[in-house]
């Protein structure tokens, strides 16, 4: 009985653990995308999922640990770096496409043309 009441308390009282659970799931899905995708653009989408899960953690710990705006600022910096990262990565992907005529990560195994 205590197990059932603990579970129902857990399901109806949103706390830090819930946000950590969501971010853990997002992180795992992102890793799965990075590991299994063939298209380089899809690998980048997996990386975006991972960065988002890290951001949820930052904001959730800032809220529940009462750290004020410091955690939110870390999340802001992560978003800025993600923008820079995806711009560079897509430029590289475009160059790879020009050189090899595809962007499948398993077929690109030469540094030169």
């Amino acid at each position: 009985m205590t197990d059932m009441s603990t579970l129902s308390t857990f399901l109806t009282h949103i706390g830090l653990g819930h946000f950590l659970f969501i971010s853990g799931m997002l992180f795992s899905l992102g890793i799965y995308g990075v590991v299994t995708r063939k298209n380089a653009v899809m690998v980048l989408m997996g990386i975006e999922l991972i960065l988002n899960s890290a951001n949820i953690n930052f904001v959730a710990f800032a809220r529940y640990g009462n750290y004020g705006f410091h955690g939110q600022l870390a999340a802001l910096f992560v978003i800025i770096l993600a923008a820079a990262e995806s711009a560079i990565a897509l430029a590289i992907v475009l160059n790879i496409y020009k050189t090899f005529n595809n962007v499948n990560v398993d077929e690109i195994d030469k540094l030169r043309e």
């Binding site: 951001n55 904001v59 809220r63 939110q72 999340a75 802001l76």
Partner: peptide
Amino acid sequence: GFYVLLGADFI
């Protein structure tokens, strides 16, 4: 939406 729930509206 999670950021809004956590009180981080600017983020």
